[in-house]
Amino acid sequence: MTTTTDFRTPATAFTDAVRAEASKLWSLPATWLVLGGTLALTIVLSIAFGTSANIGPDQTVNILDYGVTAVTWTQCGFFLLGVIASTSEYIGGQIRTTLIAIPDRITWRLAATVALVPITFAAALLIVATSITTILLTTGVPIAEADLDVAARIIPSAAGYLTLMAVLSSALGLLIRKAIPAAAILLVYLLILSPLLQGQNWYFLPDIASYTLWFASVPDTAPPAIASWAVVLAWTLGLLIPSIIIANRRDT
């Protein structure tokens, strides 16, 4: 039997909280279903885009732009991952176990966010790289013809954007506490509203701003990369911070 004496330093307690949150994500079947489904759909869409692409000597479109086109659709998977990461707390009464294990709610949410980032970033790197590789294989374009410097910029940029969107989605899921409404809001935006707004150059929207970061061809009207990152980060923090404040105040 132990007493209430504090054994752990704050740093150790936070590290343990991050490990617990990572363990939760890792052991949730939905995490792997969503990531596996996103990878599979990215490959299928890339094959479809690659076989219908008109690649020839007079082709002006950068092959890398074809390479990431599938991800503009399958980014939905990363939004779903974020929603599942937070709303799964409210299934089976797990939220009570979580808050008894990690009662400081700010520590809990920061730990959950820190745990989500590396898993999402690694998966995003894999999926974006797979998307580009699939296009190269499908179109028969040799890798030597692809601009590897540009590829080295757009793959981590896309992974960074997708990771921030998973964090944003997790924050929205925490605010709403139900997976279906949170996912519906995000999917309606991504699959219906955003495509309609593509011609507007509304770079204050996170996905439209991000396309200037992870497409090889950037429009002349696009803001500088630092401004695009600021937009994506502002949207993420704009949902993350209120979600932590509200989670810290409300009854479970």
Partner: peptide, 23 residues
């Protein structure tokens, strides 16, 4: 909420298992 080692202070069993059903 201020305890750094909460599980060493209190073990609690509320209604249900407190576990996600798919884990």
């Amino acid at each position: 909420a201020s305890l750094r080692d909460p599980l060493r202070s209190i073990g609690a069993v509320l209604d249900g298992s407190g576990a996600h059903r798919s884990r």
